[in-house]
């Protein structure tokens, strides 16, 4: 895969920033508007997949290499578990206790603020990181596998 024509490359180099920003917006405002970590994470992954389809696999791998993607994946899972554990350690009220909201934000005028809902935005960020990194990882692995076939099998590399 050497990438596509110059038209696709130019358009996708402009559009990728918008897709990435939209994914970040969906993640950060997940507790106020439709969206959340799952949808935002898949949008983040799809921006990198667009890079991979337009510029070729090597270019995408320079931007986000495979070990870095797997580290981000693990970091998202650990961050989500750490947020859950903080609820256990902080107030001893239980796993996944929303301690920030219950302790600090409860009486204040919290409605419709970006900084509200306690641990939910943190969990959204963790879930978005995890879903995006893992989906990018699996598509990268899939394209690496399909790259070279054994001479006995049937693959015509015309593109």
């Amino acid at each position: 895969m050497k990438g596509m024509t110059i038209i696709v490359k130019t358009i996708s180099s402009w559009v990728k920033v918008l897709i990435f920003l939209f994914g970040i917006y969906i993640i950060l405002f997940g507790h106020l508007t439709p969206g959340g970590g799952f949808a935002g994470g898949v949008i983040l992954a799809s921006s990198y997949v667009l890079l991979m389809l337009a510029f070729g696999r090597e270019f995408a791998e320079e931007n986000l290499s495979l070990p870095l993607a797997s580290k981000l994946d693990c970091a998202g899972a650990l961050l989500f578990a750490a947020v859950a554990l903080c609820g256990l350690l902080y107030g001893a009220a239980g796993f996944f206790w929303n301690f920030i909201h219950q302790k600090y934000l409860m009486g204040t005028d919290y409605e419709f603020n970006l900084v509200s809902a306690g641990t939910i935005p943190l969990s959204n960020i963790a879930i978005g990181l995890k879903v995006g990194a893992s989906l990018f990882l699996v598509i990268l692995t899939l394209s690496m596998c399909c790259k070279d076939f054994k001479p006995g099998s049937t693959e015509n590399e015309k593109e």
Binding site: H31, G35, G36, F96, N98, H101, E111, I120, N124
Partner: peptide, 16 residues
């Protein structure tokens, strides 16, 4: 809304 502070109820269900 009072317990989690999130206006999107689906998010408050899946994350809290």
């Amino acid at each position: 809304m009072q317990k989690t502070g999130a206006t999107n109820l689906v998010t408050s269900v899946i994350l809290d």
